[in-house]
């Protein structure tokens, strides 16, 4: 069951198309990165699925159901900026969040401890630094230990230690089996933290899938033959590749950049009496993706 599925979601602001009919789904238990440069529609997308914005057209489902507020109570969300009452302390602010989420207050101390804010928990929010505000927002998401977290640029404004700590926290949460949907404009961050990614550019979905496939800094050789069992058997004898994957009727061999020799591969299978019906070299790298994104 997907945690989130989006179908042709579109949002116009007057003549500007912020999101141009985007569709994808987020499987349970993954760390799903929504990657794109500033202005690509990441926050708009998250705003739409959280009912902050009204879509021009399209639809989405949360937990495979028509979305409503009870779904949002099962998701810890941090969108765009830390939104708290400036005149209240961290504890007082979290009491409000906990009450709306229909959770008890018992989690408050624990989540403040998790983000290292216990020392300042009674200070007014307005006296916090940007990094502390950000950490309080993450603490608020953790209230009630939700199974799904939606984090919009969670490391924005943090110092290097804060960034490292937040990424560690996200990984730790993922290891606990939580689904994390995270928007970021940092390719490097998505590669380090996420298992899946959707790449947005100017409101359009460029691609979506597993990070190790999409952002692989490797050459991928795709092979196909009528007898897939024998194809795999002889592929294993090939050597030189770093990884072998099977996807539907195709085999994927991952080679370090520039080492895949299609002629040799073809010859190898031909010698074994296997005629390939598909042989294709896919070149994907961080840099090429980055180029695609920013140009």
């Amino acid at each position: 069951m997907p945690v989130l599925s989006i179908e042709s979601l579109r949002k116009d602001y007057g003549k500007i198309q912020a999101l141009k009919g985007v569709s994808f789904s987020v499987p349970k238990g993954c760390v799903f990165g929504i990657l794109g440069p500033n202005g690509s529609g990441k926050t708009t997308l998250l705003g739409l699925i959280m009912d902050i914005l009204k879509p021009t057209s399209g639809s989405y489902k949360l937990f495979d159901e028509e979305p409503n507020e009870s779904h949002r109570r099962q998701i810890g969300t941090f969108l765009e900026t830390p939104n708290f009452y400036h005149y209240l302390s961290a504890v007082q602010n979290l009491e409000i969040s906990a009450a709306i989420k229909q959770r008890g207050k018992e989690d408050i101390e624990k989540v403040l401890e998790t983000v290292n804010l216990s020392q300042r928990k009674h200070s007014r929010f307005s006296t916090y630094s940007l990094g502390m505000k950000q950490r309080l927002a993450i603490a608020s998401c953790l209230l009630g230990s939700p199974e799904v977290l939606v984090l919009d640029e969670p490391t924005n404004g943090l110092d290097p230690v804060g960034i490292a700590e937040t990424r560690e926290l996200i990984k730790k949460l993922a290891q606990q089996g939580k689904t994390i949907i995270m928007a970021s404009h940092l390719l490097d961050e998505v590669e380090k933290v996420c298992t899946h990614v959707a790449i947005l550019k100017k409101g359009e979905l460029i691609t979506t899938g597993r990070v190790d496939e999409i952002l692989a800094n490797e050459d991928i050789v795709e092979l196909g033959a009528s007898d897939t069992v024998r194809l795999q058997q002889f592929a294993e004898q090939l050597g030189g590749y770093s990884n072998l994957k099977r996807s539907e009727n195709l085999l994927q061999l991952y080679y370090p950049v520039g080492t895949a020799n299609l002629e040799r591969i073809n010859q190898h299978f031909f010698n074994q009496g296997i005629v390939l019906n598909h042989l294709h070299l896919k070149k994907k790298s961080l840099e090429s993706k980055f180029f695609e994104l920013t140009n």
């Binding site: 959280m50 009912d51 902050i52 409503n68 507020e69 009870s70 949002r72 109570r73 969300t77 969108l79 765009e80 900026t81 939104n83 708290f84 009452y85 400036h86 969040s97 709306i100 989420k101 229909q102 608020s140």
Partner: peptide, 20 residues
């Protein structure tokens, strides 16, 4: 204040609906 602090949004993110 809710608009200035954007807490009207946060209240919805936390589990209120627009009617609330």
């Amino acid at each position: 204040n809710e608009f200035a602090f954007r807490t009207h949004r946060q209240n919805i993110l936390d589990g209120w609906n627009r009617k609330n």
